[in-house]
Design a protein around this nucleic acid. Structure first.
Lengths: 172, 172
DNA sequence: TATTGTTATACTCTATAACTATA
DNA sequence: TATAGTTATAGAGTATAACAATA
């Protein structure tokens, strides 16, 4: 795998070398494409674990994971949205699904009656406890092809790329 | 950003350290989650370029890119599916859309009348020529936060991760 | 019989925004 | 007025498989 040769660094493509047509686009070397393909594979590999055996949708799994990692029961939908990078509406839908499946409980927040305290039920904790080792094992298997140094590199690289992407998103 | 501590390397989570519950799942450090969030940002940043100004759907853009990068006009739908990592049905739909928009032409393949030769029209080439510098500039901006060495690392890391993910996919 | 590609169908997911209740 | 969360609705995307044409 290769990534397109880098000759230009402005976000809007207004530098000379960009617009002269010297740069070709090769899908297989195009980083956003590579990222998308890898993500599809990795997502699928994780989804296999919670979809069939536990009948969870992707967003439900994400909310379950968020609730499972916090000890205190003070999880409002807003907090969950922030932790999971999901929209409030998607969180709301996921909560409905998890509630219906008996995996989470919802109690009105006494300090602010607009919001709820969400928490895993006993069943929810059980499901969580079953899934977590499976997904961690798959993550570990994925990363086992990398050295500790490469993992550290990847972490830094992702941070930098996320920052750049967020800068670009502002441009619209 | 951090990635979960790695202590286990078997795909099915049957090693001792996996099932003892010593490993916690922290969404923010979970690699598949990080990958998914980064991909969402990067995809959005690229989509901004072809969606609004050129009215293309994601799959249409991908097919357009595939057709644009090949010089000979011998692109069957099957070849496009392979190059774009798309399903034949998605390719078929994307082709309909691009055809309707007048961006591609389709002529029956004389050697095998089941398939077609797909190619960009003059209009399609024009659109392609307009978009390519824009997306390459965005890719360049994203990667401009990385050193040449980091880009090389990333390339190798993605290769390794893709291989691992594909190995896991077989397990189902 | 197998392959290329299209289409039908039902299903899921998404986006926008209106809405309720509370602050 | 602003915020937390839900719901309505329409549109986009997906998956499965049946299908026609050709090999």
């Amino acid at each position: 795998m290769f990534i397109s040769k880098q000759e230009n660094i402005t976000p809007e493509g207004d530098s000379k070398s960009d617009t002269e047509g010297a740069n070709r686009l090769e899908l297989a070397r195009f980083f956003p494409y590579q990222l998308s393909v890898l993500n599809a594979s990795v997502s699928e590999v994780v989804a296999q674990l919670y979809r069939g055996r536990f009948q969870l949708a992707a967003h439900e799994w994400r909310v379950l994971a968020a609730l499972g990692e916090s000890d205190d029961g003070s999880n409002s939908a807003k907090v969950i949205a922030a932790v999971t990078s999901m929209e409030k509406m998607q969180v709301s839908r996921a909560i409905s699904g998890l509630k219906k499946a008996g995996l989470i409980s919802r109690t009105v927040n006494k300090n602010d009656r607009r919001s709820s305290c969400l928490a895993l039920t006993a069943t929810g904790k059980e499901v969580y406890t079953q899934i977590v080792p499976l997904v961690l094992a798959r993550e570990a298997y994925l990363l086992s092809a990398l050295s500790q140094d490469e993992i550290a590199q990847l972490t830094m690289i992702f941070d930098k790329l996320a920052a750049q992407a967020n800068a670009l998103k502002q441009l619209g």
